[in-house]
Design a binder for these strands. Structure first.
Lengths: 207, 207
DNA sequence: GCCCCAGGTGAGCGGGCGCTTAGCGCGCGG
DNA sequence: CCGCGCGCTAAGCGCCCGCTCACCTGGGGC
């Protein structure tokens, strides 16, 4: 069920689309630094240092520090949307599709906690235009999950009081995994994914 | 069910214990600024300006900017623990106590979103000693919720696969309300509290 | 009426920030 | 074998940060 990109220890394999190599190394360094300290507490000197380059090298590949965050955020959200879309549009009953979506979404947040943390929690550091672009992707994520729940309700498989509110709660539960999950803690990403899939099926009253 | 302190519009009534008046105004200004921009993006000049004072005035009442965050975080966590403890140790069945705890905890996060945001999401900006102190309070919050769930399981009222994991998920769900709740959105704090109480009872398989 | 001092201000220090610029070295076409 | 341009660095600019300090002020005790 898990694929290499979301449980790989290095957590750097998802950035293959970023070229050239120096730009990718800077971006990976930025992800690590932002996740550890937060965007505003991270300096461009720190990012460049982690990538083994001088501070000025950053500005050959990126116009500003904010552009780095924007690129990270967009790629990350596209990956998240891809995960949900694949699960939502797959085969199976609504319950199976919802469990699959939650399971893989949670595994991505837990296994790629470093990336997910930046993607989910540093949104407010973006400027208005970039933030608006990212929020559009988030609304699409919301729509995919709501679609599964609506299917389940329509088929009589789910028992939900408030579809919109429950959708929000399900996504909220998954996203917050990036805040608390600890790689050296008692659970593996797979275990949390399985536990959460079960909890979400209960939340929607799956038969 | 709601009390004045957690749904009051001004959201400034919980800081009565902070004296003198100038110190309280600075602290409230800091809460607002930290919630809006985050700790690292907030300047001491901004905090002092919101309180109607000169930048230097801050240092008469607080040793550093970090001490402000520490005081806010400690008072906020004590309030959160108080809410959970009151609900956990009240009368009623485990289901009633769990619904009450989740309802009031969520109302606090939604109604006092400004405060809750700082309390729940700016923890990493604290130094090691202060963070350790706050983490101890968080473990007590965790213990209160776990206690209710264990009571329900022991009484045969709940059906839970993993008590520790479910406790974490319940708290995670409540805490994340501070991230997404919008005062001008479609729900009131009371409505979210009621919806979440229902969702959590489903998560623990309450009869 | 006078002093005192807690609580406040205005100005500014040292430093680190995001970002720029002048110039270096090296692989490659001619 | 030259020279040119791309990718990078060393140095540093201007700014604003957290924080300090010398000074001011107005209301209470004697």
């Amino acid at each position: 069920m898990s694929t290499a990109e979301d449980t790989a220890g290095g957590e750097t394999s998802a950035w293959g689309e970023v070229t050239p190599d120096a730009a990718r190394r800077l971006l990976i360094a930025a992800v690590e630094a932002f996740a550890e300290r937060g965007y505003h507490a991270t300096t461009t000197r720190d990012i460049a240092g982690r990538a083994g380059m001088s501070p000025a090298a950053l500005y050959i590949h990126y116009k500003t520090k904010e552009e780095l965050l924007h690129r990270i955020s967009r790629i990350g959200h596209e990956k998240a949307l891809d995960i949900l879309r694949t699960a939502a549009r797959g085969e199976g009953t609504p319950a199976e599709r919802l469990a699959g979506a939650v399971g893989s979404f949670v595994r991505w947040h837990a296994g790629g906690r470093t990336t997910a943390r930046v993607v989910q929690y540093e949104l407010d550091s973006l400027g208005p235009d970039a933030r608006a672009e990212i929020l559009a992707l988030r609304r699409q994520c919301d729509a995919e999950v709501r679609g599964i729940i609506e299917d389940g309700v329509a088929a009589g498989d789910f028992d939900v009081l408030d579809v919109k509110g429950t959708t929000l709660a399900v996504l909220s539960l998954c996203i917050d995994v990036a805040r608390w999950f600890n790689v050296s803690g008692p659970w593996t990403p797979d275990e949390v994914g399985a536990l959460y899939a079960d909890l979400v099926l209960r939340m929607v009253g799956a038969k």
